[in-house]
Design a protein around this nucleic acid. Structure first.
Length: 300
DNA sequence: AAAGGCTACAAGATTACATCA
DNA sequence: TGTGATGTAATCTTGTAGCCT
């Protein structure tokens, strides 16, 4: 049985500036903020060869990443999707910070009717351009989305983890945000989902590691006990210098009926370790974990 | 068909700001 | 009131895919 699991804190000092280097070191599971002491370095590599029973039965829980700040989970029907309902009144829901408001005039979220009638591919290009053009901005100002805005975005994220230009604009218009803000929110949301899922995977692997370590310890103890038993047995019984070797696999005498030493007789033949087709002996590498939450469907 | 430029977008890394204990 | 920790919006960099010439 072999297990290799490397987990560790991010080394002190600055983060790698080079993305490829960082992802290579982290097995593609990099991430995290730029500060130190902010949780795990989520890069890990693992190799498992062992008994299926070695891993904890409970599998990682599929994450529900709805912000705790939202309190009890908001039901989708109660919110309604902004692009599905023209009657949704955000003002009635109550707005958060006014700094999130987009200037009414020159609002790029207004879709030109001509654009709406364009072919899909062309439309998306035009819409994307339109959303970029309103990046006219001045100083960087950190805004805080209201709970309602976050809830809307969350509900939308449950439907689609990625945005298309039309949806981006619809959300932006409905939530009175800039399309860029919606885009950024989705980017960050995907990153958070991945981070959380990686943490869950990490916990799961740690439990596997603990279970395998415990089993390893148990087997070593059993082995030492058997060796001790054998030693005392040979001391008192003085077994014959040679004994018949019986194949452990077929329980028959070899053709040659070779006489081997006691030590060799105690060692099972290599064939005894050969995996049988009936029951796999080693850890099945088929990933037992659930798919990450909000995984984009292949259809979309 | 192959090559190169352009554009859009996603992921990852990082920064900067807001909030809270 | 000051401060560090934390959450997250925003920005930057890089890689990639699709389209066009």
């Amino acid at each position: 049985m072999e297990l290799e699991l490397r987990l560790g804190d991010r080394p002190p000092g600055r983060q790698l500036k080079n993305t490829t280097a960082a992802t290579a070191a982290g097995g593609g599971a990099g991430g995290g903020s730029g500060r130190q002491n902010r949780g795990l370095n989520l890069g890990f590599c693992v190799g498992l060869v062992g008994n299926e029973s070695s891993c904890p039965a409970e599998l990682p829980v599929r994450l529900d990443l709805l912000p705790l700040s939202l309190g009890p989970r908001l039901a989708a029907p109660s919110l309604g999707f902004p692009w599905a309902s023209e009657n949704t009144n955000l003002e009635a829901l109550g707005r958060g910070l006014d700094v999130n408001l987009v200037p009414e005039e020159g609002e790029a979220a207004e879709v030109d009717p001509a654009i709406s009638s364009s072919p899909p591919a062309e439309t998306e290009k035009v819409l994307s351009r339109a959303s970029d053009e309103e990046e006219n901005s001045g100083a960087r100002k950190k805004l805080r989305l209201s709970k309602e805005q976050s809830a809307f975005l969350e509900e939308s994220f449950k439907e689609h983890t990625t945005l298309n230009p039309r949806l981006k604009l619809a959300l932006a218009k409905q939530l009175n945000l800039r399309p860029r803000q919606v885009e950024v929110w989705f980017q960050n949301r995907r990153a958070r989902t991945k981070l959380k899922q990686t943490e869950v995977d990490c916990e799961y692997l740690k439990r596997c590691c603990d279970a395998l370590t415990e089993e390893n310890r148990r087997l070593r103890k059993e082995l030492s006990e058997l060796r001790a038993l054998k030693t005392s047995h040979s001391f008192f019984m003085q077994p014959p210098a040679t004994t018949l070797s019986i194949c452990a696999a077929c329980e028959r005498l070899p053709k040659s009926s070779a006489l081997v030493s006691g030590a060799e007789a105690a060692r099972p033949p290599a064939s005894a370790f050969a995996p049988t087709s009936a029951k796999p002996r080693f850890f099945d590498f088929a990933d037992p974990r659930p798919a990450p939450a909000n995984q984009p469907s292949a259809a979309s």
